[in-house]
């Protein structure tokens, strides 16, 4: 279980990153926290010839409020997200998601940007980004662009990133006053990959659901938004929610794909169970469960 030989560079600018990425092509691999990449290299599932370490790139580790919303630098590590009062105040769903990710020792090193760029279909954060309507800032030597999370995740380990580009920041737009959020997953052991997971952000106007973003992970090839299910939830009233049309729409629009441990049929069942639980938790009564 040793990685194949590789060269290693701590890049100091996006231009340097771009030049090396162009020179090495598919043999170049960016490393952020390395908590998914290093095991893949140990198992020789990844054999990059060049590792481009982002740890010395300036300006990627800040969390700050901007006019567009809460901006989180790509190299912010999970434990920093969990400890951030800004994140707790402006994106509590992110704070709530961190304890579900692996274990404390992994959360010391893993980064938000690295997680999103890896695009593991069983990972929590891509779904949280979909639920919160995140905008992802991507940069390379040719400049920067911003794309919605919903257009960023393409497939398993597949994103809108082009060679030589990295995520530099994630912006979470300000939430409306009536926002409620929750995340949960079905998992055999704490810290394992989820069998099925869901992250919901529901916006109430008074006691009526005015908007909903229902994201699921570990169900198919990437994190997905259940848009028909969300439409079936809109207009329903707090304390009087009928989950049946929501769950029916969900089963219709998302076709789960089996993984190593769970059949598609199991995932379909668990997906509905989990969605029902989250609706109950968020909308059954008066108590605000902003989380």
């Amino acid at each position: 279980m040793k990685a194949a030989p590789f060269d290693y560079v701590r890049v100091s600018s996006l231009d340097e990153l771009g030049e090396l990425a162009a020179a090495y092509g598919d043999d170049a691999q960016v490393i952020a926290g390395g908590q998914s990449l290093v095991p893949a290299m140990a198992m020789r599932m990844a054999r990059p010839k060049l590792l481009l370490d982002l740890c010395d790139l300036p300006g990627l580790a800040d969390i700050r409020l901007t006019p567009e919303g809460l901006e989180i630098g790509a190299m912010v590590r999970y434990f920093e997200l969990a400890a951030s009062p800004l994140v707790a105040a402006h994106a509590p769903l992110v704070s709530a998601a961190v304890p579900l990710i692996a274990h404390e020792a992994i959360r010391s090193r893993g980064t938000l940007g690295g997680n999103l760029a890896h695009a593991d279909p069983a990972s929590e954060m891509p779904a949280v980004m979909l639920a919160l309507g995140a905008v992802i800032t991507i940069a390379g030597s040719n400049g920067a662009r911003r794309i919605p999370a919903a257009e960023f995740f393409i497939g398993t380990y597949e994103t809108a990133l082009r060679p030589g580009e990295i995520i530099t920041a994630i912006t979470l737009p300000a939430a409306p006053v009536g926002r409620r959020g929750a995340i949960d997953e079905v998992v055999r052991r704490s810290g394992d990959y989820a069998a099925v997971g869901a992250a919901f952000a529901i916006d109430l106007e008074g006691e009526t659901v005015a908007g909903a973003r229902l994201a699921f992970f570990a169900v198919c090839e990437r994190a997905v938004l259940a848009e028909k299910a969300a439409a079936a939830l809109c207009g329903q009233r707090l304390g009087h929610v009928d989950p049946a049309p929501v769950l029916d729409a969900l089963a219709e629009e998302i076709t789960p794909v089996a993984d190593l441990h769970n059949r598609a049929e199991t995932k379909r069942h668990l997906m509905k169970v989990l969605a029902g639980r989250l609706l109950q938790r968020l909308l059954s009564g008066e108590k605000s469960t902003h989380g």
Binding site: I31, G34, L51, D53, A105, R109
Partner: peptide, 15 residues
Amino acid sequence: VDGRIARACLMFAIQ
């Protein structure tokens, strides 16, 4: 690593 627990097998020494 820098005061927090981490997996020594998930870091290359050069990092």
